[in-house]
């Protein structure tokens, strides 16, 4: 299995009048991600740490082939998101809370539906479904419509559905956002389990403790730019007092100073 590598990607959005008002800017374009590169390797969890609006979701959406970087490229298992998006999609799972499941269907139906769209045989799909539904406690709610599930159960169903094809690359945007402690714990435990199976895991977060608990390597992204990247231990070592938090706030302050200057 090859690493997932992001090479010098840049993504710019054209702002609508409404967006310009929200962002309080006159600029017609917004650089969301600027020359970002990193590599996530099999058997490790790579964390993308940054404040709100830093460009984390945009970066991960580029990885997931939902949007295309203007410049640079991303390679997943040797396939380029620009020229081989179909092969990339076969190999990755992408999770974010903006990806929703249709209210009307049950977890069982959706699992089967997405299995088929991934070309998984029904037999294989059934075996996998039983295992993962049990693992997340979805089995008791397998025939309940998504609309009637608790938000935690919805999130777990989304996770299960995103993994129908047992992919080697898992991309997870803000995995614990909006989850109660118990569900969050189930999810983070599972991410570690996937890592231990040798899969490549990328997650984004604005919560320092998530990085400290889960990640092997971390990249700190602020204002669309990658400000620091290394193993967690070495990033911490670069901080004045050995704390991730100190380094993070120093970088945020430095960046704010830059943009005011």
């Amino acid at each position: 299995m090859k690493p997932l590598s992001v090479k010098n990607i840049r993504k710019t959005f054209t702002l609508s009048r409404k967006q310009r008002k929200i962002e309080q800017t006159d600029a017609a374009r917004k650089v969301a991600v600027d020359n970002v590169s990193f590599e996530a390797r099999p058997g490790e969890i790579f964390g993308l740490l940054g404040p709100n609006g830093a460009g984390k979701t945009t970066t991960l959406r580029c990885v997931a082939t939902l949007i295309r970087p203007d410049e640079g490229d991303i390679s997943v298992d040797g396939f380029s998101v620009l020229t081989d998006a179909g092969n990339v999609r076969k190999r990755i799972a992408f999770l974010t809370n903006e990806l929703k499941l249709e209210d009307h269907f049950t977890p069982t139906y959706l699992y089967r539906y997405f299995s088929r769209l991934h070309g998984i045989d029904d037999d294989v799909a059934n075996t996998r479904r039983e295992a993962i539904f049990k693992r997340f406690g979805i089995d008791k709610f397998a025939e309940v419509k998504v609309a009637d599930l608790s938000s935690g159960m919805k999130q777990k169903t989304s996770l299960a559905v995103s993994l129908v094809h047992d992919p080697d690359y898992i991309v997870f945007d803000e995995p614990t956002n909006g989850l109660d402690v118990l569900t969050a714990r189930t999810v983070t435990d599972y991410l570690q389990e996937l890592r231990d199976q040798g899969k490549t895991v990328i997650l984004s977060t604005h919560i320092l403790s998530v990085v400290e608990k889960l990640c092997d390597r971390v990249g700190i992204i602020i204002d669309g730019e990658m400000k620091a990247m290394d193993t967690l231990t070495r990033v911490k070592a670069a901080s004045s007092d050995g704390e991730l938090e100190t380094l993070f706030f120093d970088l945020v302050e430095a960046s704010a100073g830059e943009s005011h200057a």
């Binding site: 997931a64 999609r89 990806l99 929703k100 249709e102 769209l117 991934h118 559905v161």
Partner: peptide, 17 residues
């Protein structure tokens, strides 16, 4: 409706054409 409810993205990340 699928766009509005955010379910279309779930469909678009599958490898189907």
């Amino acid at each position: 409706g699928e766009k509005e409810r955010g379910t279309v993205a779930t469909l678009l990340i599958t490898p189907i054409k």
